[in-house]
Amino acid sequence: MSENIISVSHLEKSFGGNQVLRDIDFKAYTGDVISIIGSSGSGKSTLLRCINQLEKPTSGAIFFHGKNIQDPGFSLSAYRAKVGMVFQNFNLFNNLSVLQNCVVGQVKVLNRDHGTAAKRALEILEKVGMSQYIEAKPAQISGGQKQRVAIARALAMDPEVLLFDEPTSALDPEMVGEVLNVMGTLAKSGLTMLVVTHEMDFAREVSNRIVFMDEGVIVEDATPEEMFVNPKSERTKAFLNRFRNR
């Protein structure tokens, strides 16, 4: 039995009068690879950003190993180190080299000494195939390479969960594969992953669960087989059909 790692309970989020998330209930267990799909504006990014606390929920609660992350005594900094985020636009630190991008968090947040941090960063950059570029600045590498470094930066914190927000959407088609490969390897390694994606092949083959969101609610939460072969909701069917006919 794997352990419940993240649990979202009655989460609501509004921007002004615009309610973006409604009564979201959702649990992730260790080793889960969950794809979150849904049309544009359905609230997928907002859900991930609430989990990482880049957005503060309007109401509801999020638990990490059973602890409410909004409790006053909860260390957000330590939590964020454990729950990393990979962005659509990479957001590599532009003033730092590839290596430093993967070192700075370890040194400042985890208080590792510089040598240990650099060694760990190198190991991980090796894994994502970027160890040759440690001296390059973000502006000097391609989109696919940037995203692999961004993944390495998150991994360097030794996280328990990684959140991916459309990690391949800003990439040229020929670079999508290299990033999905890295993510596939991570999924096999047992890392818990929440992936907002429009890559249906990835969702079907790599994830063990798919969450379909529409207009701020979770419409369906099922295994890939159930979701693709036998979706329960009409809304899910309509969404998947639109995808197939594209």
Binding site: M85, K108, V109
Partner: peptide, 22 residues
């Protein structure tokens, strides 16, 4: 870019650390 700030926050850096180093 706001993304620089968010990326630093997302790995646990504080406001001061984010400002100082990024």
């Amino acid at each position: 870019d706001k993304g620089q700030y968010e990326a630093a926050q997302s790995i646990g850096m504080t406001h001061t650390q984010t400002m100082l180093h990024i």
